[in-house]
Amino acid sequence: MSEIVTRHQPQIGPGGGGGGLPGEGYGDFGRGDGFPPGHARRVYRTGMYLALVGISMLFMAFTSAYIVRSGLGDDWAATTLPSLLWWNTAILLCSSFTMEQTRATLARGLRSASNGWITATAVLGTLFLVGQILAWRELASHGIFVATNPSSSFFYLLTGAHGVHLAGGLIALYYITLEAWRYRLGPAKRTLVEVTAIYWHFMDGLWIYILMLLWWWR
C-alpha cells in the first residue's frame, strides 16, 4: 500500500484551544486531511448544525400549515396569549445569557464560577418549562383546549413541540451540571458544553420565533 497516516502521529494538534470557534485550537484540520472519527470537535458542531436544520424544517412545515390553515374556514378564533408567556420568554433569554457565561468562564478556567452559571442555566430552563405548563393550565382553565379551534390547536402544537425539543436540551444541561459539580468538565467535555450551548441558543431563538408567529399572525 502507499503512504499512510498512522493514528499515533499527532493528528489532533497541540490541544488546549479553549472553547474557540472552528479554526482555532485543537482539532483544527483542513477538511480531508485525515483523522480518526470522534476526535474532532468539528464533527460534533457539524452534527449539531445539521440537527438544527432538520428541526427547522419541522417548524417550517408547522408554520406553513399554520399560515394556510388560518386563512381557511370561518372557525379561526385568535387565541389570547397568557401573559405568563412573556415572563417565560424573559426567563429563557436569561438562560441563554447564563449559558454564554458558562462557556466564557469555562474557557478561562474559572471552574467554580462556571459551575454556578451552568446551574443557573439548568434552573432557568426548568423554570421555563414549568412556566409553559402553567400557561397551558391557564388556557385550559378558560376552557381553551387543543380541539377548541384551529388557533388553539396550533398554540398547543407549537408550544408542545418546542417544549419537547427544549426538554432534550435540558437533559443535556442536567448532565453537564452534574459533571461540572464533580469537576469532570475536562477538555474532552468542552465540546459537549459547546454544542449544548448552540442548541440552547437555538431553542431560545426558536421560541422567540414561535411567540412572534402566535402574536403577529393571529
Binding site: L58, F59, M60, A61, A65, V146, A147, P150, S153
Partner: peptide, 20 residues
Amino acid sequence: GVLLAGGILLLMDRIAGTSF
C-alpha cells in the same frame, strides 16, 4: 422533517379532535 410534521398533524386530527 416535513413528513414528520404532517404525520403529527394527522395524528392530532385522529386522536385529539383537531381539524387541520
